[in-house]
Design a protein around this nucleic acid. Structure first.
Lengths: 232, 232
DNA sequence: AGCTATTATTAGGATCGGTTAAATTCTTTA
DNA sequence: TAAAGAATTTAACCGATCCTAATAATAGCT
């Protein structure tokens, strides 16, 4: 009835903080207190407190009033959580029939409870996938992540053909809408128009009957690569 | 990044207490403070405190200095945890290649993190099994459990033929040893001898090359039914 | 019936991770 | 460059869940 606790066990909260800081470092640079607070929906003073504790145990480097950085140890722990999350999402979709918009919430809870063994068994059952259902690369056991050089849809010039590679997994409604446009990682399309002043982008999905208009906000979160071929 | 919290959410601790109390009620009668404390590896005063809180929210009925009983609401919650645990164990064995001695610890952590939906998807993928790998009946979604009338091996008279129906899932070593005797739920055997004063029981497993001797302590946890047929 | 052993509860703390309100430091702009 | 504004940290506190030590109630034995 008692859960096994290795000395290296991190608390749920700690795991959430490390993952959040990792995500901020990935997509911006330094992780600031308020950004962490926003991401975790927690008040800034709580974050200050936790930052102090995590720095003391060597998971973070903290420059007061500036921000934090993961130490190598912190980064390893964060990448472990990211691997767990993405393997879980993939497993839930592939093996248990979940939709891509509902896996995030489930993985978010499970990632704190699974053992390393379970994750590796799931990964094996999936054939050691490299990407999750949203196109995000899955870190390896040893903590390497593929560094993708994709570009938000809003930055792709009109006339170019591109392929969707990755979308954020967090908002189910957004994901459902993206799917309703015929978009998923791997789908190719041509950018046929874009309005100025953060206006919408118009795309022509390969094989689709008509063009789709994608609002700026949404297009900013669709990560693509430009491909040379032409599309219908 | 934020876990969804319905108003009905129970804490991990609460879930553990309810499950423990349910197990004590099943296999003994009333659940006493010290029994709960032993089962959860927690000091008795902590249990007193938790009992007070759980009584206040209507999950328990507490008679001071006597013991506690689950209310219908508490029983429902406990059975939900038992269902989760047993579905998880079955899934881990059937779909992810776990051994029957290692599923308990994993299920013990996961049962607090899974959603109802995940459990029902797992149950469906398994074909809605009625028993877990250790032979324990899986409660239904609506909270019914099959009441088994099995008997510990120590109470089966010499000469009778019996079938193993259920073993406790908690101790991996014990489970490995049981398996090494050729025993699993569903395996039939004849009781060929029993020594007095809590001595060992000797059994002849159907199709086995030689008799097996089972110590009293172990035999007390092997739940069987007497069957009429004869065994080699 | 009374004493003792067992069991349970109360009292008083610790820790973790969150809160709000107040003080501090950094940044930006007039 | 000084002052306003924004971000961060400190201070004080809360609730959940655990602990140990001390007290209280029950039960069993003579």
């Amino acid at each position: 009835m008692v859960a096994a606790q290795r000395s290296e066990e991190l608390s749920r909260s700690t795991e959430d903080y490390l993952k959040a800081i990792y995500q901020l470092e990935e997509s911006g640079g330094s992780a600031q207190t308020s950004a962490i607070a926003d991401l975790l929906a927690i008040a800034p003073p709580s974050v200050s407190g936790m930052i102090k504790r995590l720095s003391e145990v060597g998971l973070l480097e903290h420059v007061p009033y500036k921000g934090v950085q993961l130490t190598p140890k912190g980064r390893r722990a964060a990448l472990k959580m990211v691997r767990r999350h993405r393997i879980l999402e993939t497993y839930l979709m592939e093996k248990l029939g979940y939709d891509w918009d509902s896996v995030h919430a489930e993985a978010e809870r499970l990632e704190h409870a699974v053992s390393d063994e379970l994750i590796e068994r799931m990964a094996m059952a999936l054939g050691n996938p490299r990407y999750d259902p949203h196109g995000a690369p899955i870190p390896t056991v040893s903590g390497e992540v593929e560094q993708l050089d994709h570009v938000p849809l809003v930055d792709i010039p009109v006339g170019e053909t591109a392929e969707l590679r990755m979308v954020s997994d967090e908002d189910p409604e957004r994901l459902r809408f993206i799917a309703s446009l015929g978009l998923r990682p791997g789908v190719a399309f041509r950018v046929v128009g874009r309005q100025p002043f953060h206006g919408p982008v118009t795309i022509r999905v390969a094989g689709a009957s008509r063009d789709q208009v994608v609002g700026y906000e949404l297009a900013r979160g669709l990560y693509c690569v430009i491909v040379p071929e032409e599309v219908g």
